[in-house]
Deep mutational scan, measured.
Amino acid sequence: MPSETPQAEVGPTGCPHRSGPHSAKGSLEKGSPEDKEAKEPLWIRPDAPSRCTWQLGRPASESPHHHTAPAKSPKILPDILKKIGDTPMVRINKIGKKFGLKCELLAKCEFFNAGGSVKDRISLRMIEDAERDGTLKPGDTIIEPTSGNTGIGLALAAAVRGYRCIIVMPEKMSSEKVDVLRALGAEIVRTPTNARFDSPESHVGVAWRLKNEIPNSHILDQYRNASNPLAHYDTTADEILQQCDGKLDMLVASVGTGGTITGIARKLKEKCPGCRIIGVDPEGSILAEPEELNQTEQTTYEVEGIGYDFIPTVLDRTVVDKWFKSNDEEAFTFARMLIAQEGLLCGGSAGSTVAVAVKAAQELQEGQRCVVILPDSVRNYMTKFLSDRWMLQKGFLKEEDLTEKKPWWWHLRVQELGLSAPLTVLPTITCGHTIEILREKGFDQAPVVDEAGVILGMVTLGNMLSSLLAGKVQPSDQVGKVIYKQFKQIRLTDTLGRLSHILEMDHFALVV
C-alpha cells in the first residue's frame, strides 16, 4: 500500500459497493488471473465517493441489488447463522422517566444476534452475496479491517462455511474481542490505534497488504460494500417497522461504517417519512454534520465500534436529520445504567446512543415513540467499562463513588512517597548505550525526554532486548525507535489509591 493515498477510480455505471474482489474501477472485475494482476490496485480507499443510485421515491424494481426479506425461524435451526436477525424490541421503562421523557422509549437489542452484535447481519450478508456472485469459493481466505464486531461476525460465518479468516484490528480494541476471535479460529493482526486510516500501518493498510500477498484472499470491505446497508434496509428496518406496527417518530443510532443508519433510515424514509433520524458520533470522530460539531482538541476516545477519521463510502449522511456528539463518560455511564436499571447487557456504544436519545427525544410528546439501536453486548468489555477499576483509572468514576473498604494508605498523596527525580535518556542515544546505562543503574525503564525536557515516551529494558533479539533494531539504532509513546501519567497530588489502580493494569506510571 502506498504512503500517498491515490484516488480510487470510478467506473461508468453500476453501484460502487459490489461485493467481491475490487477492480481499479471499484466494481467486480472478471477475466484471467493475468488481467486481474495487471488491473487490481494495491488498495482502494474506504472513503471513495459513493456511486449508489438510491433515491427517495425511486421504484424498488430499479435497484441493481439482490434483495432479501426477513424469514421466520424454524423450530430447529440448521446452523447458528440462522440465529442472525429477528432481534427483540424491548421497552426501556426507567431511564426515559428518569430523564423526563414523555414518549415511549424502545430498544432494538442487536446483541441477541448469534455473534453478539449488529455486525453479524452485514457479515453474513457480505459472505452470502460474495458466494452468490462467485467471488468467494471453498478454501478462500477472508481478510477484514475491523474494530472487532464485524470480525467476530465474519469469523463466526467463516467457521460454519469453512473459510480461512484473518482479522486486522487496532490495538485499542478489547482483549475479549481478541479472545472470541481466536476461539472462532480467526487469525488476528493488531495495528497502532493512532495510525491514520490511509497510513500503511493502519488496520485498513495492513489488511490490503495481506490481501496482495495471500492468494485467493478477499477483503469484503464493510466500508464500501453495498451488502452492509442492504442488510439493514432489507431486514433490520423491516423488523423495526413490523415490531412497531409502522408507528415510530424517531430513530437514534450510533454511527461507525454508517451501514446501520443508512440502511434503516432509507427504508424508514420510504415507509415512515415523518420519522426523524438521529445520528450519534463520538467526540474525536469526524462523521457528524455540520462540520463545526467535529471541532475539538480530542483525537482519541475509548468507546469502541463507532466514529472514524474518514467518511466511509457506505455512509449516506443525507438521510440523517440531526447529529449529536457523545463523550466517553456519558457513554459508559449510560451503558452501566442500562445494565443495572433495565437488565440490558449492552456495550458502550449503546450507552452513547441512549445518552443522546434522552436529549433528542425531549421534543417528542406522549403517545409518540423513539427507537434506539443497541449494537453489541457487554461480553466484549468485561475488563473495560464493566470494571470499576478501569473506570477509575480512566477518570470516568471517582473514588467516592465506590463504597468498598480501602487499605490505610489509600488516600495518601503520591508526594508522600518522597520520590527522587528519575533517570532520563535522550532519544538520540543508541539502544546499546541505553541498555548499558539501565543495567549500570539497576533500572528496568526510563523516560525519554528531548533537550527541552519534554517527555516523549518510555523505554524499557525488556522491550529493547526483545527488539534486538527479533532483529527489529540494532544496538547502533537510536533509542527513539523503541519508545512507548502511550503511558499513564500521575500527579504528586493524586492518591496512592489512584496509582494502585493504574499499576494493576500497566507496568509503570510516570509522575509529573
Score class of each variant (00 low, 15 high):
Thr193Gly: 08
Ala8Thr: 11
Gly31His: 09
Glu4Arg: 07
His218Ala: 02
Asp140Gln: 04
Thr150Trp: 00
Glu34Tyr: 13
Gly258Arg: 00
Asp198Trp: 04
Pro64Thr: 02
Val160Phe: 03
Leu56Val: 12
Ser23Pro: 10
Thr257Tyr: 00
Lys137Gln: 11
Cys244Arg: 05
Ala231Val: 13
Gly139Glu: 01
Leu101Gln: 03
Asp79Lys: 04
Arg45Cys: 01
Pro273Lys: 15
Asp234Gln: 06
Arg58Met: 09
Ile167Leu: 12
Thr53Gly: 05
Asp129Gly: 05
Glu128Met: 12
Ala183Thr: 12
His218Asn: 13
Cys15Trp: 09
Ala231Asp: 09
Thr257Gly: 02
Glu29Tyr: 12
Glu62Leu: 11
Ala237Ser: 08
Pro41Ala: 12
Glu62His: 06
Leu77Ser: 02
Gln222Pro: 01
Pro64Ala: 13
Lys267Met: 12
Gly153Leu: 00
Lys137Asp: 08
Lys137Pro: 03
Trp208Cys: 09
Cys165His: 00
Pro49Ser: 15
Lys30Asp: 14
Thr5Ile: 12
Ser61Thr: 15
Lys94Asn: 13
Arg51Phe: 07
Asn149Asp: 04
Phe111Val: 03
His22Ile: 05
Val118Arg: 04
Asp179Gln: 01
His232Lys: 03
Pro138Gln: 07
Arg209Phe: 06
Cys244Trp: 05
Met89His: 05
Asn212Gln: 11
Arg125Gln: 15
Glu40Cys: 04
Ser3Gly: 10
Gly11Phe: 04
Gly57Ile: 08
Leu42Glu: 09
Gly11Arg: 13
Ile261Leu: 07
Pro78Gly: 11
Pro200Glu: 07
Arg196Phe: 11
Leu220Ser: 03
Ala253Ile: 02
Glu201Ala: 03
Arg58Glu: 12
Gly256Glu: 01
Leu136Gln: 05
Met173Lys: 06
Thr236Tyr: 00
Thr262Asn: 09
Gly148Trp: 01
Ala231Ser: 06
Phe111Glu: 04
Gly205Pro: 09
Ala24Met: 10
Val118Lys: 06
Lys98Thr: 10
Arg196Lys: 14
Met169Leu: 14
Thr13His: 07
Glu176Tyr: 01
Pro6Lys: 08
Arg190Leu: 05
Ala107Phe: 02
Asp234Asn: 13
Lys94Ala: 10
Arg51Pro: 07
Glu187Gln: 09
Ala60Asn: 11
Ile84Phe: 09
Gly31Trp: 15
Leu77Asn: 09
Ile261Ala: 12
Glu213Leu: 07
